[in-house]
Design a binder for these strands. Structure first.
Length: 898
RNA sequence: GGGGGGUUAGCUCAGCGGUAGAGCGCCUGCUUUACACGCAGGAAGUCGCAGGUUCGAGACCUGCACCCCCCACCA
C-alpha cells in the first residue's frame, strides 16, 4: 500500500551502483543455498539490521514472538508462524519503519515438567526423591539446551528478530512482572483462593483450567442403581456413568415439580455399600425432569454441578477419590484401589446385592488432560482463581470498538462467543516448574500476598512463614508477554517506545489460551490493548496425514531447510498461507518453491551476464523504450502494487503468487526471451541495447527487493553481485509501484504479440510438425484501431523471431491456410503441407463450439431484461465477445470449406 | 446442546454477481547460446444436492446431504 510508505519513492531500486569488482558479479553455476544462508544471517546481525533504527518519532512496527515452549525443538507449525512474521518484519523494515520484533521462549510449566519427568523415569530416578530444588535445577539445564536449539532453528529460518532483547518467561524481570500482576489482581479482589471442584489430572497431579480439558465422546455405560428409601418400598433408582463416585454421595436430588418423584419428598435414602443416610433434596437447577429416572445422586466432592447443589443445600463434601486417582480412606473397603478398578468392584458388589437395575450403553463426553490424555477427575481442592468477568468485559468492548481487529475476521465472532460465556480461571498448579504463587502463610495462619518475599508476617510478626507450594498456570505469565518483555511494570524506555505492539501472528488454536487473555491483561494492566491486529493463521499439517493429535508432525524445519533451502521453505509457507484453517505442506510444494528459487537464480545469472562490463541506461528519462520494455516495466509496477496490497491484507498466498507469476511467466518466459533478441544484435541499435540492459537491471533489482521478505537469503546473495553492496538489500526501499510506468497500451500490444506467438506454436502442435517447420502468418490488424495496428507493425520483427515465422504478411490471409481471429486480429496460418482430414475435423469441432457460444451470446443480447438492466460496460463486453466469436466463425468457416 | 468452517480440474487450494484459475500431477513435442529444478504446446471441471432471488449465481438467500473444527457442568 503505497500511501503507507513513510519514505516512498518511485523507482525504488533504480539508483543502485555498478559493482566495483567485476569478478564478483559471477554467480555459481549451481544454486546451493547452504553456501550463503548462514553467512548472510551473521552479516545482518552483526550490522544491527534486526534492531530498530531511526528517529524515535518515526513510524514503528512492533511484534512480539509467540514464545515457543522450551520443551524441545521447533516444529513445522512454529516455523510457519515465524515465517509469516518475518515477512511482515522485513517488508515493513524496507518500507522504512523502525521494526522491532522481540524474541523469547516460554517456560511452559506442565509441558516442560513432563518432559523432564520422562527423562528422569528413563534414568530410574524418582522425582520425589530428587526433591523440588534439584528437580528445578535439572529443568534449567534442559531449558538452556532447548533454548539454544530453538534459537538456532529460528536463525536458520532467517527470522530478523532482535536477539539483544531476547526474553524468557522465568527471567527475573518477567517473574517480577508476574508477581506484580498477581498482587495487583489480589488487591483488587480479582484473585481469590477457595475450595472448589476443579479439573484434576491424576497423572500430572495438578489442577488444570477448563481450557486444558479436552472433551472427547466415549462409549460408556449408564448404570442404574437402586438405593433403599425407608417408606418407599421400590427404593430410588438413580443413573450414573461413574458408580465409584457413589461412595461420596451425600444426598439424592429430585425436581420439586416432578410427580414421578414426589413420593420421595422429605424422605431419607440409604447409600448402598457405605450405609450413609442421604437426605432427598429438591433442586430444580440440578435435576432435569426429562432425563433418566428423575432422581440424581449428589456427589459434591466429585462433580461440579453436584458441588454447586451441595453448597446450596449445605451438604457434606466427602472426597472418595484422591489426587492420585486412587480411592481414599472414605471409600472403605475400596480404599487404595484405582478409580477404574473400584468402579468394577462396586458394580460387581451392586450386582450381587441385586441393586444394579440395569446397564445401558451410553455415549457421552469425557474430559481428558490436554497434556497426557488421562481422564480428568473433578476434584475438590483449594485453588487460586481469577475472577474473570471484570477483565473480560473491557476486552470485549475493545474488540467491539475496533481497537483490536482479527484477521481473518471470522475469528471475531468466536472470540465474542467465548468471552461472553467465560468462567473464572483456575490459575494454581500443583507443579514445581513455574512461577511460585506469592502467597505466604505464617505459623498463626495469616495469609499474605506480596510482591517481595516476606521476612515476617505483617499481621502478627511471626517469622515462621511458608510460601504456597503451588505455581501459576503458564498462561498467567504468557498473558503479560507483550509488555513484560519491555520491562513492565517499570516505565522503561522500551516500554514507552514500543508498547503497545502492532501485530500479533499466531495459530487460532491459542485464541482463548493466549490471545484473549493478553487482551484482557493488556487492557487491565496497561490501559491499552497489547496489539491492534491479530492475524490468526491456519494449522499446518502434512499432506496425506489426518488431523490426528499425537501423530507428532515430525518434519523438522531443519530437515526441510537442508533439503530445499530456507528460502524455499519460507516461500512454500507463504504460498500455502491461504485464509483457510489448515495449511497443507507437502514435499512437492517444497520442490516447487525450490524450483522457483532456482529460476530466480538462473534469471539473475543470465541478467548479470548480459550486464557485465557493458553500458546500460541508468535512468529511462529521455530514453526511447520499446514496447516490450514498457510492457515489463508496467507489469513490474503493477506487481509491486499488488504485492503490497496483499501483504497489507495478510494474504501471503496472493502476494507469493503475484511474485511467482510475474517473475516466471512474464519476466523470464516473456521479457527475457524478447531481450535476447535485442541483445543478440538482430534488432535495434546500441542505444536500444543499453536501454534493454537498463530495464533488465531494474527488473532484477526490483524483483529481488520484492522477493526479499519471502526469500531473504537468495535475494541478498544475488543483490551483492548486482549492486556490489553486500548485505544491504534488507534495508533497501521496498518497491511500491510507480504509476508513471504503468502503460495499458504497451500491455495490450505485448499481450497481442504473445497471443499471436502462442497461436502459431499451437498451430504447429496441432499439425504435428516440428517447432522449426516454416510457417507463413498473415495478420490483418483492424485499421480502425490505428494505435494497435501501428504497435503490431513495430513488433513485427519480434513476432517473426518468437514465432519462428518463415513469412509474415500484413494483409488479408491467403486462401490456402487456416484462419482464425487472435486477440481481435484476423490471422491466417499456412504450412507447406496442406491440411488433412483430421485437421478439418478439428476445425469443424472448434466451429461447432463457436456456434454454440455465438447462439448463447446473441440470445443474451436479444433479451430485453439484459439490455435494460445490465450495466452498459457488461453489455458492450458481451457485444464485443459476440463479434469476436462471429469473426472467428467466419474465418474458420471459410478455411474449413476449402 | 450451542457456535463456526468446508464441499471448485487426478491432488492441494485460490476465486466470491457478468458463462471457471494457480501450483503439482498427466499427455505431446523440444540439446531454442540463464535454467531439464528447464522450454513450448495440450487434455482435464454438471464449481456437493434441491429450490429461490436476479437480466445474469461456484459466488447471494432457503432447505438437504456428507466432512471437519471449536465451545458446553446433559446425571
Amino acid at each position: 500500500m503505497p500511501g503507507d510508505n513513510p519514505h516512498a519513492r518511485p523507482g525504488a531500486a533504480e539508483s543502485v551502483e555498478t559493482p566495483a569488482d567485476e569478478s564478483s558479479t559471477k554467480l555459481e553455476k549451481t544454486f546451493d543455498p547452504a553456501h550463503f544462508e548462514e553467512r548472510w544471517y551473521s552479516i545482518w546481525e552483526a550490522e544491527g539490521r534486526f534492531q530498530p533504527v531511526g528517529p524515535p518519532g518515526s513510524p514503528r512496527f512492533v511484534m512480539v514472538i509467540p514464545p515457543p515452549n522450551v520443551t524441545g525443538r521447533l516444529h513445522i507449525g512454529h516455523a510457519f508462524g515465524r515465517t509469516l512474521e518475518d515477512i511482515l518484519a522485513r517488508w515493513k523494515r524496507m518500507l522504512g519503519y523502525r521494526v522491532l520484533w522481540v524474541p523469547g521462549t516460554d517456560h511452559a510449566g506442565i509441558a516442560t515438567q513432563m518432559v523432564i519427568e520422562r527423562e528422569l523415569a528413563k534414568e530410574g530416578i524418582d522425582k520425589l526423591e530428587l526433591g523440588r530444588e534439584r528437580f528445578v535445577e535439572r529443568v534449567w539445564v534442559w531449558k538452556r539446551d532447548a533454548k539454544d536449539t530453538i534459537q538456532s532453528q529460528i536463525r536458520r529460518l532467517g527470522c530478523s528478530l532482535d536477539w539483544t532483547r531476547e526474553r524468557f518467561t522465568l527471567d527475573p524481570e518477567l517473574s517480577a512482572a508476574v508477581r506484580h500482576a498477581f498482587v495487583r489482581l489480589y488487591e483488587e479482589g480479582l484473585i481469590y483462593r477457595g475450595r472448589y471442584v476443579v479439573n484434576w489430572c491424576p497423572r500430572c497431579g495438578t489442577a488444570v483450567s477448563d481450557l486444558e480439558v479436552v472433551h472427547k465422546d466415549v462409549d460408556g455405560s449408564l448404570y442404574r442403581i437402586r438405593y433403599d428409601v425407608p417408606g418407599v418400598p421400590s427404593g430410588a433408582v438413580v443413573a450414573t456413568t461413574r458408580p465409584e463416585t457413589m461412595l461420596g454421595d451425600t444426598a439424592l436430588a429430585i425436581h420439586p415439580d416432578d410427580p414421578r418423584t414426589a413420593k420421595f419428598q422429605g424422605k431419607t435414602a440409604v447409600l448402598p455399600i457405605i450405609g450413609r443416610e442421604l437426605p432427598v433434596i429438591e433442586d430444580p437447577i440440578l435435576v432435569d425432569r426429562e432425563f433418566g429416572t428423575g432422581i440424581v445422586k449428589v456427589t459434591p466432592a466429585h462433580d461440579a454441578n453436584d458441588f454447586a447443589s451441595g453448597r446450596r443445600h449445605g451438604l457434606e463434601e466427602v472426597v472418595v477419590i484422591g489426587p492420585d486417582g486412587r480411592m481414599t480412606a472414605e471409600a472403605g473397603e475400596y480404599a487404595g484401589l484405582d478409580r477404574f478398578e473400584a468402579r468394577k468392584g462396586i458394580v460387581k458388589r451392586l450386582q450381587s446385592e441385586n441393586r444394579l437395575v440395569g446397564i445401558d450403553p451410553h455415549r457421552h463426553s469425557l474430559g481428558h488432560c490436554q497434556r497426557c490424555d488421562t481422564v480428568i477427575e473433578p476434584y475438590l481442592s483449594t485453588q487460586w482463581f481469577v475472577k474473570i468477568r471484570p477483565l473480560a468485559d473491557p476486552a470485549i468492548r475493545a474488540v467491539e470498538a475496533g481497537e483490536v481487529r482479527f484477521v481473518p475476521e471470522l475469528w471475531t465472532k468466536t472470540y465474542f462467543e467465548w468471552m461472553r460465556n467465560i468462567h473464572d480461571w483456575c490459575i494454581s498448579r500443583q507443579l514445581w516448574w513455574g512461577h511460585r504463587i506469592p502467597a505466604f502463610t505464617c505459623a498463626n495462619g495469616h495469609l499474605t500476598v506480596a510482591e517481595e518475599d516476606l521476612i515476617a508476617c505483617p499481621t502478627c510478626g511471626s517469622i515462621e512463614l511458608t510460601q504456597d507450594p503451588d505455581v501459576l498456570d503458564t498462561w498467567f505469565s504468557s498473558q503479560l508477554w507483550p509488555f513484560s518483555v519491555f520491562g513492565w511494570p517499570k516505565e522503561t524506555d522500551d516500554y514507552r517506545g514500543f508498547y503497545p505492539t502492532d501485530v500479533l501472528v499466531t495459530g487460532y488454536d491459542i485464541l482463548f489460551f493466549w490471545v484473549a487473555r493478553m487482551i484482557m491483561a493488556g487492557i487491565h494492566f496497561t490501559g491499552s490493548a497489547p496489539f491492534s491486529t491479530v492475524h490468526l493463521h491456519g494449522l499446518v499439517r502434512l499432506a496425506g496425514e489426518k488431523m490426528s493429535k499425537t501423530r507428532g508432525n515430525v518434519i523438522d524445519p531443519l530437515v526441510a531447510i537442508s533439503e530445499f533451502g530456507a528460502d524455499a521453505l519460507r516461500f512454500t509457507y507463504a504460498s500455502s498461507a491461504t485464509s483457510g484453517t489448515t495449511v497443507t505442506l507437502d514435499r512437492d510444494r517444497l520442490a516447487g518453491s525450490r524450483n522457483f528459487a532456482t529460476k530466480l537464480w538462473n534469471a539473475a545469472r543470465f541478467t548479470l551476464g548480459q550486464l557485465e562490463g557493458k553500458p546500460r541506461a541508468e535512468s529511462f528519462e529521455g530514453r526511447t523504450l520499446t514496447l516490450p520494455d514498457r510492457w515489463i516495466l508496467s507489469r513490474l509496477s503493477r506487481t509491486a502494487g499488488d504485492v503490497n496490497r496483499h501483504l497489507a491484507a495478510f494474504r501471503f498466498d496472493e502476494a507469493a503468487q503475484a511474485l511467482y507469476g510475474f517473475l516466471w511467466h512474464e519476466l523470464c518466459d516473456g521479457y527475457l526471451e524478447m531481450a535476447k533478441h535485442i541483445l543478440s544484435g538482430r534488432e535495434g541499435d546500441d542505444g536500444a541495447r543499453e536501454v534493454t540492459r537498463g530495464v533488465l537491471h531494474r527488473c532484477l533489482a526490483d524483483s529481488l527487493a520484492l522477493l526479499h521478505p519471502f526469500m531473504p537469503f537468495l535475494t541478498e546473495e544475488i543483490w551483492e553481485k548486482l549492486t556490489g553492496r553486500p548485505g544491504t538489500l534488507i534495508v533497501s526501499p521496498y518497491p511500491t509501484g510507480d504509476p508513471a510506468l504503468e502503460d495499458p497500451r504497451a500491455e495490450a500490444a505485448v499481450e497481442t504479440l504473445r497471443a499471436l506467438v502462442t497461436r502459431v506454436r499451437n498451430f504447429r502442435g496441432e499439425r504435428r510438425v516440428s517447432p522449426t517447420e516454416p510457417v507463413h502468418l498473415w495478420i490483418e490488424p483492424d485499421p480502425g484501431d490505428a494505435e494497435a495496428a501501428e504497435d503490431l507493425r513495430v513488433l513485427e520483427p519480434m513476432l517473426r523471431h518468437l514465432a519462428r515465422l518463415s513469412d509474415l504478411t500484413f494483409g488479408p490471409p491467403a486462401a490456402l491456410g487456416e484462419r482464425d481471429v487472435v486477440a481481435g486480429v484476423p490471422v491466417g496460418l499456412a504450412l507447406p503441407a496442406a491440411a488433412s482430414e483430421a485437421d478439418r475435423a478439428r476445425m469443424a469441432k472448434t466451429l461447432a463450439q463457436l456456434e454454440k457460444e455465438a447462439d448463447e451470446l446473441s440470445a443474451k443480447l436479444r433479451n430485453p431484461g439484459f439490455l435494460d438492466r445490465a450495466p452498459a460496460d457488461v453489455v458492450e463486453k458481451t457485444r464485443r465477445r459476440l463479434q469476436e466469436v462471429e469473426e472467428r466463425r467466419a474465418a474458420l468457416g471459410s478455411a474449413a470449406r476449402q
